[in-house]
Design a binder for these strands. Structure first.
Lengths: 192, 192
DNA sequence: GGAAGCATGTAAAAGGTTACATGATTGC
DNA sequence: GCAATCATGTAACCTTTTACATGCTTCC
């Protein structure tokens, strides 16, 4: 149940609407914890109901929008969750499972690794940009977060976020290397 | 929906009972596609109903057990799935999400990385054993699989399975390196 | 006037986890 | 006789995905 903690983490930087939150999930957070709008709106309601968020109605022409802020209880819950022990989820890796049975598909085995390579190459590019934006402290959400915290904490905030992205980058590079080695393997097997 | 393909992959090596399948999921397959018994038994019934598996009742003293075999349609479905394009699932990484907010938990941030290290070190050990067992073609299930396929295919079967495990090992090593760098980071921040 | 983006939701289905529940067999 | 292992299942719940649904606002 980390969706709510991902939400708390974002809203702890600054108050925002559900829509803004959804866009944030589609961008920066997407590489760590993906969530779609069908999950986010109901969760916001639940979290408001449980006292982790408060919503203020803001006018938007004729209609209204709801701006969510984190409450003291919400901040407490986020901290409690960060301090708790990680429960590592069971491994579930479709690509690797398919790769295990690639002898059944000699015609498409090379394509499999080419697509794996393409997928993670594209991801790597986005992650490198993200790393830059964290290290340079550009990115409006990070700036908003820093503005709420004392300057003495800034180094740690940046360091942990950059370290997180760095970990994703290394994992992604491992996938790229695996795909490249896979292509070589397929060619070697084809050569006989 | 890869559970059924994981099942088809295992049963394609040799017929077995649900219980044996569950044990296989708890061991070798666990690192690629985890599944518990509450998922497996109902899925077996569904797959039998849909014609991907057939069950023969075998006696077991007073009671009976059901031995599942893969059908032609099941083999075809497995091949079709291996040939199909991978749909990469959305990223969802609890540990990395927590790491992002570690500035909120200065007291436990070192422990977080220590546990990450311990978790992946233990996993690495199991994966290294698994790699050995694949490369040496020990492991009764792999031997059963090889026995069903012509000798000319054996090299490819072993190569793809070993390559899969090698990929998991590299990913795991990346996590270990990340945890070690995290510990150093925490110590550096604490030293000021 | 129309397109892009802002904004908020729901319903149904699929997939996965946790806990409960039962009984036979094998080996000590 | 008892413990471990073999063997099979169900129920409730939680999480996630896919698809549907609606309407306002801003900019061109």
């Amino acid at each position: 149940m980390s969706l709510r903690h991902a939400i708390l983490g974002i809203v702890s930087a600054r108050p925002m609407t559900g829509y803004e939150l959804i866009r944030t999930f589609a961008n920066s957070v997407a590489y760590t914890w993906a969530a779609g709008q069908a999950q986010i709106y109901p969760e916001l309601h639940k979290m408001e109901h449980e006292g982790f968020l408060t919503a203020q109605a803001a006018s938007r022409g004729a209609s209204e929008k709801r701006v969510y802020s984190i409450t003291a209880a919400g901040g407490e819950e986020l901290r409690r969750w960060v301090e708790a022990t990680t429960r590592y989820p069971a491994e579930r890796d479709v690509a690797r499972l398919r790769a295990t049975y690639l002898e059944l598909a000699p015609a498409t085995s090379r394509t499999f690794f080419e697509q794996h390579l393409a997928h993670y190459t594209a991801l790597l590019e986005k992650l490198e940009l993200r790393r830059l934006s964290v290290e340079q402290r550009s990115g409006p959400l990070l700036q908003a977060r820093l503005a709420t915290r004392p300057a003495a904490e800034h180094a740690a905030i940046i360091a942990f976020k950059a370290h997180g992205v760095a970990g994703q980058i290394e994992r992604t590079k491992a996938e790229i290397a695996w795909a490249q080695a896979g292509i070589e393997l397929v060619d070697r097997l084809a050569a006989g």
